[in-house]
Structure formats: structure tokens, C-alpha cells
Design a protein around this nucleic acid. Structure first.
Lengths: 108, 108
DNA sequence: AAAAATACTTTGCTATCCGATGTATATTGT
DNA sequence: ACAATATACATCGGATAGCAAAGTATTTTT
């Protein structure tokens, strides 16, 4: 039953949703990339590759929507924490409104 | 307020939704491309370019999800009507389920 | 007769996902 | 002790698909 098509569609759908998922999680708490990959899996049941997420975080930071900050660990590899900026918050709000209005129409 | 970013995001978001919009409309009645562009505008308030929709219809037909059929008109240019196949219907059902689950999570 | 609307197609540009590969450190198993 | 795995970040190339623009052709409107 067109499993390939559906899988590809999921990937396309993610393209639009991923930034929103990132914002939603970062609204609750700041995270580092590796952590986000796991959180997205738990919260949204979606497997995001590192080659997808890291460049996305860099893009969002470049846009001023996320604020990155390196943090040395008492033990282990340093982590690059991201928190959502005030501009990121307003973007998220507008995303939620738009996505909500569209997705509602689907269920009508 | 990052209008560019939001607009680009809208486009990315649509990428995932567009096939679903097409299926939803074709579930009610068969349509030709030019008509679909207008219906999508009315139903979902989204402007789809011809360069977006026509290749999409060809792809969906190639996947066996839509059935195309040329129809000569008593007057005017011939139209290529598309109707949703049974396989297309089951794909749409799985899309709706997935999109619905995502919408729920956004609103939590 | 010119312009606009209808109707489909193709081309080039761009964004972004994703698997693979690379770098480096820390922890766990045997 | 040492190999394997986990943690953590980054980059590259191939593939997908939206979108503006340009192309073809017919019909309707001005």
C-alpha cells in the first residue's frame, strides 16, 4: 500500500513541522541538539537525523530565533544549548495559529 | 518580525499538506488542474502556482493514487480530469490520521 | 484586432531532508 | 587494559519538491 509514498510524505510533512517542534520543546526548557533529537522522538514520535537537526538549529540561530550558548560540562563533551528568543516565541505563536487553522479544515 | 522566515515556512508547511488538499477535494468530485487551483484557494485559502500543482498531479497519477482522463469540451480547451483511486483514498485516510495526531500535540 | 482568460507543460532556482562520514570525548563491557 | 558503544557536534552530496517564469494553444471579452 504505497509505503514508500507515505514515508516520503512524512518526510515532506516534517519539513514544515520540524521548526515548530523545536520551538515547542525549547519553549519549555533550553536544550542541546543531541537532547532535542531524543525529546522530539518522545514528544512527537519522530526520528530526526543529526544531519537534519544540527543544520536546522544553526539556521534558526542565524535568523535570531534561537540563542545558542556553549556550556562546559563537569564531565563529558561540551554542549551547545539553545534557548528560544523573544522573536522565536512570536514566530512560534504565528506558526501555531496558521497550522491550527489549516489542520482544522482537514477534519471538517 | 521575520516575515521572510514565516513566508518561507508557510511554503514548507504547504509542501507536506498539498497532496492531502488535492485528495480531500477529489474525494468529493473529480476535477481538472485549473479548477483545483481555484478550489484549493476557496477551501483552504492557499494560492498554489501552476508550476506546483501540475507536476504534483502528474506525480500522484504516476503513483497510482489519481486516475487522469482527458475530456473534450463542447467548447474550449480539453480538460484533464483527475479522480482519486481506491489506493489514493487509503493514503488519504492514513494522512488524515497522522495530521490529526500532530494537530492534537500542537494544541496540548 | 488586441487583450485577457482558460488550460496544460516545462525549466531553472532554491530550500531542506537525510544518510554517510568525520572529529572528539566519555562510558561500558569483557 | 582495551575495544565497543554512547555522547555530542559538524559537514557533504544526492534527492525531493515548491515556485516564478516562460511556453503552447484555444476561447472569450473588450
Amino acid at each position: 500500500m504505497k509505503v514508500e509514498f507515505i514515508e516520503n510524505w512524512h518526510s515532506q510533512f516534517r519539513k514544515g513541522l520540524l521548526p515548530m517542534f523545536v520551538f515547542i520543546i525549547l519553549e519549555k526548557k533550553k536544550c542541546y541538539g543531541y537532547e532535542l533529537i531524543q525529546d522530539i522522538k518522545v514528544e512527537f514520535d519522530i526520528d530526526v537525523g543529526e544531519g537534519t537537526l544540527y543544520p536546522l538549529l544553526v539556521r534558526l540561530a542565524k535568523e535570531g530565533l534561537l540563542s545558542p550558548q556553549w556550556e562546559e560540562q563537569p564531565s563529558g563533551i561540551p554542549r551547545k544549548y539553545y534557548s528560544i528568543s523573544s522573536e522565536g516565541k512570536s514566530v512560534l505563536a504565528s506558526m501555531k495559529t496558521y497550522a491550527g487553522s489549516i489542520l482544522k479544515k482537514i477534519n471538517e
